[in-house]
Design a protein around this nucleic acid. Sequence first.
DNA 1: CCCATTTCGTTGACTAGATGAAGAAAATCG
DNA 2: CGATTTTCTTCATCTAGTCAACGAAATGGG
Lengths: 394, 394
Amino acid sequence: MSPAPIPFSDLVSEQTRAEIFATVLTVGPLSRTQLAQRLGLVPSSVTRMLPPLLEHDYLRETDAVPQGRGRPQKLLHVNPDKHVVVGMKIGPGQVSGVVTDMAANVLARAEQPIADCRPETALSAAAALTSGLLEEAPQAADRVLGVGVGVSGHVDPAAGVCRYSALLGWTKVDVAGPLAAATGLMVTVNNDVNTLVVAERWFGAGRDVDSFAVVTVGPGIGCGLQLGGSLYAGTSGMAGELGHLPLDPAGPMCSCGRRGCLEALAGDRAVLRHIQDGGITDCTTIADAIALARGEHSAARTVARAAFAEVGAALGRGLAGLCNLLNLQKIIIAGEGAVAHDLFGPAMQQALDAHAFSDAARDCQIHIDPVTHDLWARGAACLVIREAVGAAIS
Amino acid sequence: MSPAPIPFSDLVSEQTRAEIFATVLTVGPLSRTQLAQRLGLVPSSVTRMLPPLLEHDYLRETDAVPQGRGRPQKLLHVNPDKHVVVGMKIGPGQVSGVVTDMAANVLARAEQPIADCRPETALSAAAALTSGLLEEAPQAADRVLGVGVGVSGHVDPAAGVCRYSALLGWTKVDVAGPLAAATGLMVTVNNDVNTLVVAERWFGAGRDVDSFAVVTVGPGIGCGLQLGGSLYAGTSGMAGELGHLPLDPAGPMCSCGRRGCLEALAGDRAVLRHIQDGGITDCTTIADAIALARGEHSAARTVARAAFAEVGAALGRGLAGLCNLLNLQKIIIAGEGAVAHDLFGPAMQQALDAHAFSDAARDCQIHIDPVTHDLWARGAACLVIREAVGAAIS
DNA sequence: CCCATTTCGTTGACTAGATGAAGAAAATCG
DNA sequence: CGATTTTCTTCATCTAGTCAACGAAATGGG
C-alpha cells in the first residue's frame, strides 16, 4: 500500500480557507460573490484567499457563465480527483466501506461479512476491504488522503480507540493504530452515528440547520448531535447515548442489564417481543416482523402492527425528551430500522406531540431518512475530508 | 429614575478586550503575564489591549507587589464602582432582587411578595423593587448599567419576552418592554435557571469546567446547560426542559397534563404525595416534609425518609439520562429543594450510578449547591454584565 | 555596595486577515 | 456603439496578533 500524501493541512489549515473549501464542497459550485455572502465576507477577501487553493488544484473554476446582465460569474467547484478517501463502518457481522473522491462522491463500495466480532477479525477485514476498494479505483493509490472509520460504541477520536462497544463486545480496542500500520494510511476513527451526522450535515437533511440530532433505529438506538453548528462530542467523546435513556421503571430488561431503557422499548428486539407476546411464535427476525405487518390482513398482521405502534410510541417519548431538553431544529431518524417508518412513524409522531412542549415540537422538524445505504461509510469519508480541511468547518 | 449610561459596548465590544475583562472579573486580580497565559496570548498583546480598559476605568491596577525575585507584578482588577447592576428573579409568590457592583458583589438585596402572578402585578413589583434597591445604593443612580431579570419558564432573550410559564401562568408576556419603560433602564431577560448557569460559571462550581448542567429542584425541576464553554439556548431559547422528561408511563399525573414526567416524580409535590400515600395527612408543605424526615425517630419519619428516597431515585434516573446524552463534566444540583440533599442525595446518586454508563458517570461530577440564596438574582446581574461585555465571553 | 540575575512589562518592526473604495472586465440593453 | 450592470481584482489601510529586543524593578551573591 502506498504511503499517504497529506499535503492539504499546511495549505488550508487557515480557518477561512477551510471554510471556503467546505462551503464550495457542500453547497455546490459558487461564484466568488456568492461565496462571500454566504461566509459573511466581502468579495475581495475571497479573492485574496483563493490563490493557494487554486494553485494546488483543490478548487477549480469553470469558464465564465453568463446569467443576464453583467459580467458572467466563474463558478468554483472542488476538484474531485485531487484525492480519494476511504470510509468504512465496522458493525456486528460485517464491515462495509466506500471509496470517494474529494467531493465525497462514491467511486466504489464493498462489504465483507465477518465471522466473529473479535477486534483482530474486524480490523483485518477492514484492512483487506481498504486494499480491495483501492484496487477498484486503480489510478487512485497514490492519492489517498486517508481512511475514516465509524465504529458503533463509545469512541475516543483523538486516541483512535474504541472505549466500549456493547454491540461488538469491545473494550479499549485500538482501531487507528493497527489499521494505520496495515494500510500505511492516515486513519480517523469516530462513533458511527457521528459519521452519519457529518454526512447529513454536508449532504442530507442537516444541510440547512445548525442544531439537529440523528437518531438511528435498528437493533440498538443511537444518537449523534450537531449543536450550534458543530458536532457535539461531550467531555470524553461519548455524548449521544440516547438508547439507554430510562423511560420505564417497569419496562423490559435491556441488554445493558437495566430496565426500561429506550433501546429495550424501541429497538428491534422490542418489536419481536411484542409480537411474541401477542402469541405469534414464528417471527424471529425484524424482517419477518416487517413482512408480517405489511402482509395480508390477518390476526397476525394486527399483532405486528400493534407491535410497531408500541415501539413507535416509546420512540416518540424518547424523542420528546430530546426535543424538550435541547430544543433542536430537526431530528433525523435513520438506521436500518427507518425503513419501517410507515409502521412506527404515526405512533411515534403522536407520542412526540403528546410529550413534547408544543413550542419545542413546533420548532423541531422530524425527518425520516430510510435510505442510509452508503451514508454511514460515506460519512466516515467525510470525516477524513473534514479533518484534513480543518475541524473548524463543523 | 435616571437614564442609563451604557458606555461599555463600543469600547470593549472587541472580543479580546471582552475576554480580558471577563477573565479579570472571574478569576480575580491577575498580572498581565498571568492574563496572557490564561488567554493563550503573549504578554505584549495584553499590554496593547489594555489602555482603553484602564483609561475608561473599567479595570485598575494595584501598586507593584513584589514576590521574590524579579520585577514585581502590577495586578489588574475590575473597578467595582464603575457601574451598578440590578438583578432580579420573578417567581411565583415573590420578586427578589439585588444590586451589585461591576464585580457582581451584592450591595443590597430585597424581595417583595406578590399577591397574584398576573404580569402587571409582577412587573410593577419588579419596577418598584428596582427603585427601592437603587435608593439603598444612593450614589449609584447615575451609574446603572442595566437590569437583568430571570423568569421561570420559556424565555426569548432576544425579544425580552416570556413565551410560556406554567409556574406563573404566563403566555407571551413582554417583560423587557414594560420594565424598561417603567425604570428607564436597559433590561435583559432570560430563563431563571440560565441566570444560575452564568453565576455558577463565573463564581460557582462551574468555574473550572466548560460543559455542565445546573438542575434545580423544588416545586418544579429546571435545567440550564453550558455546553462547550457557552450557554446553550437551543433553537428558540427554550433548551433545558428537563422537568418534563417522560420517565414513567405509569407514573402520576404531572401539572402539565402528562403522566410520569420527572417533575411529577421528583418535584416537591411528589414528596408530599408519597408521604400522604404513606398515610400521613398533616404534612402539606415541603418544609413539613423536611422537618418530619429530620425529626425524631417515628413511623412518620420512616415514611418521610422513604418519600425523599423515592424522589431521589427518580431524580437520579433523570440525571442519568442527561449524563448519558450529553456526557457532561459536572451536574450542579441547586434550587430551594437542594437543602434537602441529605435526604434525597444518596438515593439519587445510587440511581444515577445504576442508570448512567460507568464511563459517563465517572466523567461527570455531581455537585450539590444548597446555598443558592441570592444566586438567582446575582446571576441575573451577571447576565447584564455579560451582555455589556460581549456575549462572546461565555 | 554594586552588579548579575530574574521576572515583568513595553516598545517597535513585522505579518496575516479583513475591509472599503476605486477601477477593470465582460456581459446585456437600448 | 455607448450606457448599464454585475463580477472580480487591485491597492491603501486597519486591526490584532507575534517576535525580538529592551527597559524596569526587585533579589542576592561577592
